[in-house]
Amino acid sequence: MIKFHPTPEHLQQFVKGTLSPVESLMISAHCDMCARCQSRVEMMTADYANTEIEQAVQSYDPDFDAMLASITQQPAAERASQIKARRNSTAIELDGKTFELPKTLHRLVKKKGNWSSLVGKLWQAPVDLGIDGVANFIYIEKGGTVPEHTHRGSEMTLVINGEFSDGLNDYDSGDLIYMTGDHTHAPRSDAPEGCLVFSIVDQPLHFTSGLARLLNPFSHLFFR
């Protein structure tokens, strides 16, 4: 059962579109796996649309007539053909095992690098998201342990398949786990099938640079 969910504040920011892309990706993937958060997001979206659009003060612009005329000149979008020529892969494989990914992460299959073996019973495959942090699929075989560590910035981990424990808690498929410098832990999996997680560790050095913040008027929306 899923025990670890994003906070209501995070869900709210996700709905508004003000959360960072990386956190939004994690929340979107969590919602693929978590019916509870998915329905919360739907409700929040309807509420937010109601206050932000339906109840909004109307703001007219003299250019609206021209805009309307130019839009209705445009053709309708072509509808996608019934049969998709080629469906992208929706699963990743390791050592003969196949792991189906949540929908949001399907696009990552193409961006995944090769699996490499870390210290005993740990496997890692990087995902190139063009982010300043590092994104990885990590697979812990049964009995595998990640050496105890803490986090310089923050770490987000989504359990995709299996179970693991870290001395603080037990985690199951669908759990979304936030870790910061305050946490020290040593993840370990004793599940027969091991455990596949998707993890993003950010490098806050770059993000908290005062200069970048000053230069960028929108930074408060993305940088924590």
Binding site: S28, G130, F218, F222
Partner: peptide, 16 residues
Amino acid sequence: LRKLQSRKEDICADDL
């Protein structure tokens, strides 16, 4: 906003 900030993350709204 992503474009204005020329952010390089390969994560767009359609994905989310």
